[in-house]
Amino acid sequence: MILEIKIAMLVLVIVCAVASITIKDLLGAAVVFGTYSFMMCLLWVSMAAVDVAFTEATIGAGISTVLMIAAVFRTTRRTKD
């Protein structure tokens, strides 16, 4: 795997992590957290961990985003920070 692509993906993961904890809207934070999981999945493919990447794509980007959105829907979208 080309080193520059790895660095770019790592930077994208960090950007998504910072974005998901700074967005002042919980629904947006949940969606960005799903994006973060998908970027993580790409990073794992670059390390030849295909099984882990498959699991992360189905669980991190799929089920946990749905659960998070369900929790936001049943509680509140408002957040102070």
Partner: peptide, 21 residues
């Protein structure tokens, strides 16, 4: 191939959740 019980189980759960959504 890549896969196994954990991934397959999650995909089955995802099909039910898709019906629910």
């Amino acid at each position: 191939s890549p896969g196994g019980g954990f991934q397959g189980g999650v995909l089955l759960a995802a099909s039910f959740i898709l019906v629910g959504l």
